[in-house]
Write a protein that binds this DNA or RNA. Sequence first.
RNA 1: GCGGAUGUGGUGAAAUUGGUAUACACGCCAGACUUAGGAUCUGGUGCCGUAAGGUGUGGAGGUUCAAGUCCUCUCAUCCGCACCA
Length: 816
Amino acid sequence: MEYNAKTIEKQWQEYWVQNRSFEPSEDFSREKKYILSMFPFPSGRLHMGHVRNYTLSDAFARYYRQQDFNVLHPIGFDSFGMPAENAAIKNGSHPKKWTYDNIDYMKGEFKSLGFSFSKERELATSDELYTKFEQGFIIDMYEKGLLYRKKGFLNWCPSCHTVLANEQVIEGSCWRCDTGVVKKDMNQYYFKITKYADELLDDLHKLENGWPKQVLTMQENWIGKSNGLEFQLRFDDDSLAKLEKKFDGFDVFTTRPDTIYGVSYAALAPEHEIVTYMIENSLLDNETVIKIKEMKNASSIDRQKEKSGISLNLNVTHPLTNKKVPLWVANFVLMDYGSGAVMAVPAHDERDFDFAKKYDLPINAVIKPFESELESSKAYTETGELFNSEIFSGLNSKEAQSKIIDYFQEKKIGKRTTNYRLKDWGVSRQRYWGAPIPFVHCDSCGIVMEKKENLPIALPDDIEITGEGNPLEKHQTWKHCKCPKCGEDAIRETDTMDTFVESSWYFLRFCASPKNWEKEAFSKEQIKYWMGVDHYIGGIEHAILHLLYARFFTKVFRDLGYLEFDEPFEKLLTQGMVLKDGAKMSKSKGNTVDPDAIIEKYGADTARLFILFAAPPTQELEWNDSAVEGAYKFLKRFYDRSSHVNKISTIPQIEHATLSKEEKFARKKVYEALARAEDVYTQKYTFNTMIAGVMEAMNALNLQSNEKVWSEGYWVLTSIMEPVIPHICWEISSRCFSLKNLTPQSVLEEVFVEESIILGVSINGKSRCEIEVAPDASKESILEAAKEKAQKWLEGKTLVKEILVPKKLVNLVIKD
RNA sequence: GCGGAUGUGGUGAAAUUGGUAUACACGCCAGACUUAGGAUCUGGUGCCGUAAGGUGUGGAGGUUCAAGUCCUCUCAUCCGCACCA
């Protein structure tokens, strides 16, 4: 029989649409599985990474459907974002048209790959309905104080007149025009994600069994919790006078309070408010001001190259010794961590040491190793024994840390504090193609939330996109409105939201029944049934931001009363990248493979089979044209051999004992494959080994010609393979089994019963020969057989030990 | 620097609790059928060796009757974070 992928695939794709085969049921009494793959940005065409992602989720979804679960396997498009605007700048196409044209094309690609997505729940985050509910949530969060507006230092491209996200700054320059990026002080909206820092960190433990360790660690490091001492460094009298008593001092944070007696200077970030005050009030000479401005304006790369600083000619007093400590501005002190100021202990911190060497500041050692001498040529950053530390001398670092913190707390001059690397999430973008932030600026009322009944605040279509500045701000009429509170003329907020906001709750929206799509974002009942996501599959590149933000939204929604759980994704599978010629596929490298071309040449089943067979999902996948060809050959053979199968509608009953050796072996291989498949879908996700098992079974079936064994084999194998290569399996199954075999299959234990078993015989751990014994042979008889067979190696030696590992091997230990 | 991961044939990769290393596939070699083959089928294929045998999971040690698997050290590659006080 000739395998014609195109015909078969078209036919079943139509069948599935007409039969609504992949729509979840609203019967909430059934057991459910929620299988989700990270939705794509509608860039135009699918790439192989997408194909890998959705082939994986599709395999899970189809498997659980076979197992009679109510399966939700939705898809959507993360459709706001910069590329749509960039396309507009480049080709003059409207972002909306560009986006929705791409979506249409990609939906066609999904269909041609046979992905079993629910059609009725498809959405795009740029849909006005989606914006409407999102803006509602934003208002809720603003009311709860979880969204606020403040000035912040942002990456600003002076040429594009826009704020850039950190990821858009490439080596200190704008990713698009290569202009040097500067920091600009601007008003921005922030989500108060830091309020949840502790919970986001602690709850990682709840995910230990379902998430890759790597992702958990990355999130842990990103949150970056550290414990230590916070205290105030106070100015001495002269310095207070110089500062016109505007500042008493400033806070510093340290994780090493045990080194406090080694403090020999203190340093402020160039952006620190005291520094700003001194510049604004001409308290510094010109040279110093120029130096500080240089530090501020340096790109982050330059700033890291070499430590530099300048003295402020001010002194603070050491909190314990009351000695004078000089105050400097230093480029290595970061404004956005801790308080933007540090106590410096050059003897025990590498940065402080480098700086002290450069500017000839004192280096006072106060910690020494327990069992060796202190070297003065570098900073000793380990823990050790304290000295020159008054009453704390002689203590070890660990004890000293808590005692010194206690001492500060007793004296009320400092306190135990926790610091986080995680910062509040800046969400406003000066961009057109995003969800508008639903606020208005009113001269008399300030920032006012839009009324929920006025939502969505939709984007205007008639805009001009030039790449410079924010098109919404330049629009003549859109931003003018009435204040929802006082009714006077007001101005709409023209900032739009970061696209990560949309992807932080889309998995909840999918739970909503399309019947109520217009009415509500989702209902508590629907969420309760479908969530959490049983398998979430996507790229490792989202290990931090997307997954952290989605976890944050889940906790916020819980606190807003919309749902009742803490974590959205129970099991996370992070797939490896798709490579060609050893490098990630990318247009710029010219090493891409177009999925459409593969489907055209071989069909979707070949692409899916290759992708799942070539490597386990978490590993990188190296594209290999001849291995694709190999997958295609297997499908041809698989299709061709189905001519050995009888048309039946129940699995054949076979009298195992009456079969030939080859027939028995074939059945054993078939059921081995089935047993392995169960494990793969539910535990290990190593589809490559499952497919190998099926190939072994096929090879074994080929060695015999019993029609019943063939039929039984195909009954089982097409069931195992349907999630991987659905079209060909539905075709064979409908022709031979009236689709009756795409159901749970049970492993027949009887086929594993062996008439004899083969044991390896090794001498001193080295395998030498084999023996064949009856399964119930006694230990003595097995050892006897082994010794007889291995006689050759035993001659002239002394046998010192005999080990029998049941069903595996015999090891004979000998001596000369 | 800190954290995480990975190292097995020519290639992608297998290997329950430690128990005959290299399943399955690609590639290669040989043969069959063919006007032809980039189709199909059959057989072979870790390395050295005619063979017996030796050797072999990045490297060096160790534990064990037995180590790809456990322990110690080390090298290499990849990924994430990074002047985080």
